[in-house]
């Protein structure tokens, strides 16, 4: 029966740590079955291993590992990372969002329409003199205010 542990890493080095850990685990013959680095979880990786000893074997000498999180997590707690919801499902019309990439990076905008199938949203920039609807990928915005705008 596998158990799930959490390893703390340097931020933005999760993928490197996961690769190195898999190589070290194979070399040291540790019973590590999988390593998960969800994008939502910065600075941590989730390791599926047989026991704590196997986990310790797999992090030996791996750079950017900052430590182990005490205890273990259940499968239910990590299940939602495996089937991530689309970004558009979490955005509703009227929300204020900040655009985080592309030519309008840093601009605030109000959501006018959500296309869940395409994972796109249509927004209008708040600071623009003439409001022009622009369509952006839902992954490229960050929700600032969830209050729906009063007309």
């Amino acid at each position: 029966m596998s158990r799930f542990f959490v390893v703390k890493t340097t931020a933005n080095q999760e993928r490197l740590v996961a690769n190195m850990m898999s190589m070290v685990a194979k070399k040291n013959k540790a019973n590590v079955y999988s390593i998960l680095a969800p994008k939502e979880l910065k600075g941590y990786v989730i390791v599926e291993a047989e026991s704590t000893e196997d986990l310790v074997k797999s992090i030996r000498g791996v750079p950017h590992v900052k430590g182990l999180v005490r205890g273990e997590v259940s499968f239910n707690e990590i299940e939602h990372f495996l089937t991530p919801r689309k970004a558009a499902e979490q955005i509703k019309e009227g929300y204020t969002v900040e655009i985080i990439s592309g030519p309008f990076k840093g601009e605030l905008a109000v959501v006018k329409r959500v296309d869940e199938a395409r994972n796109e949203i249509t927004v209008e920039l708040i600071e623009a003199v003439v409001s022009i609807p622009i369509t952006v990928k839902a992954d490229h915005v960050r929700v600032v205010d969830k209050k729906e705008e009063v007309e």
Partner: peptide
């Protein structure tokens, strides 16, 4: 692509079973 998963042992991994992964890899 987003999120990263390294499967080492697909037969014993619960995550691999859940996602229907049969071969080790990234």
């Amino acid at each position: 692509w987003y999120g990263y998963l390294v499967i080492i042992d697909p037969e014993k991994s619960e995550i691999a079973k859940k996602l229907g992964i049969r071969y080790p890899g990234k």
